[in-house]
Amino acid sequence: MFARRSTLPWPLVALFTAGYLAPYLLPTTVGRLDSGLPLTATEAGAVGSALLLSSAAAGFLLASRVDRLGPRTLARVGLALAVLGYGGAALAHAVPAVVAGALIGGFGSGTATAVAATGIAAQPDPHRTTTAGLLGVSALAGAVYLTVPHLGQGHGQPLAAIALTALAVWPLTGRLPLATAPAPSRDTATAPLPHLRAGLLLAATAPCWSLTQNALWGVSGRIGLTQAHLSETTVGAVFAIALGAGLLGVVGAGALGPRLGRALPIGGGTVLIAVCITLSASATDLTTFATGEIAWNTLYPIVLSYVIGLAASLDPRGRWAVLVGSASSLGTAAGPLTGSVLSAQAGFTAMGTVLAAGLLLIAAPMTAVALGAGRRTLPVVEIPVETQVYDKATAA
């Protein structure tokens, strides 16, 4: 088991960043697949979905095995797979090789995320560490989004960025435990998941919550271009500002910490996100489009950080954190396809209404889980002023 400590566990923060970067870069990764390779937009989206499904599979497979296999060893295996998979896909020009690399890299990302989630759950304040990890991945993804367009065409740049990040994080794995302190007994290793009903409910709603976010994200560019009649440059500028707003949201989430509990940020935040989705999907001008996208990107990381923290609070061994994160990846994978199908069949405005209605439906059970966790085990941990600057949260 990871030892609990009061200082921010930077190896876990870095590992979290490396594991989450692939989903954050999904829009540009998929967009460049169909422009740099002989793939249709649908086929490129399928490759992106396969990458995320591979990542989710790693989480489901390793949810209860991180301590037994050893965090350091497993983290290094995950990072190695990410470097080899994404790096190979970036250099390859044959579609089968790119797909194989994406699947290998996705499994590596999921493995790194599983180790990070397990370690974060063992911290005295999981929310603080989660927001630090989300701040790191938000800032890095924003930098990649701003840099990649200036590096030429082709599918390799975003994939190479993920591989290089994994490579850069590798040296920090030396500070992770090599294995759990004494080998767990059979009874301990097979101990049932605590708070089973709450965990299952959260794991069931997480894919729906994630799907709605990524359904909007997957078609936001088309909304700006075709419905709001904006130029590509203007849409890009809105997205850049929105990513900056996401960083502010992450910082805000870290500053708030557990002061508001978890029920209000998760329940109230989800309702506000539903409003933002409706606004963005119905946008016909710059003001409405920018307002919806920027507000959504500000709120999304705040709520996400509390959802991850809630999952971590349900089991100090991190199993629910990994399972909920993997379930969320399933929704992330299905999001772009869902958004495309809904918008094609019913239009962007109707798509936004359907997605918002879905969010409102799942807000109630998610809030109920948060209220129950608050009554059981929501510790109030004071965050030192000198470390608050690192707290934060967001995705693609």
Rank of each mutant, 00 (worst) to 15 (best):
G36Y: 00
V389M: 14
I308C: 09
T40K: 12
T147V: 14
R259G: 12
L260Q: 11
V271M: 08
F107S: 02
T131S: 12
A56W: 02
P194H: 03
D34L: 02
M351H: 13
L360P: 03
P149S: 13
R317P: 02
A312I: 00
F16W: 08
T349D: 08
T180N: 02
L201T: 13
G267Q: 15
A3V: 10
P182A: 02
W296E: 15
G156C: 07
P265V: 15
T233L: 06
I241W: 10
A112D: 05
H93W: 10
H127V: 13
G246H: 08
A356G: 09
G156N: 06
A41C: 11
G45A: 04
T270I: 05
L164H: 00
V385I: 06
T387H: 12
G268C: 15
D315L: 01
C276S: 09
G347R: 07
G374F: 13
T338K: 00
A102T: 09
A240C: 15
S64P: 11
T173G: 00
L248W: 04
A311W: 05
A198L: 03
A312L: 01
T131D: 04
V389F: 14
L134W: 08
G292R: 11
G101Q: 09
T287K: 13
V369I: 10
T111W: 02
G142S: 12
R317N: 06
G358Q: 01
G174M: 09
L167E: 00
A274M: 01
L371S: 05
L15T: 08
L378G: 04
G48E: 10
T284W: 12
G224Y: 11
G261Y: 01
T270K: 00
A363C: 05
A168S: 03
L201H: 03
A357C: 07
A312M: 00
A163K: 00
V95H: 08
A100V: 08
I308T: 12
T298N: 06
V77M: 02
L74M: 10
Q157F: 08
A206M: 13
Q157W: 13
E382F: 01
V271H: 04
G246E: 05
T287L: 15
Q157S: 11
A139P: 08
L140M: 05
G339H: 15
G136H: 10
L25N: 10
F2G: 03
A121G: 04
S280H: 13
L378W: 05
I223N: 01
A350G: 04
V95Q: 07
L361C: 09
L21R: 15
Y20P: 03
Y24I: 13
A255R: 11
G218C: 01
S282P: 11
P365G: 00
L355S: 01
V341L: 15
S340N: 04
A80T: 15
G19I: 10
V251P: 14
L230C: 07
S6P: 06
S54K: 04
A75K: 11
S64L: 12
Y390G: 11
C276P: 03
I383N: 06
A237E: 15
G152V: 12
P336E: 07
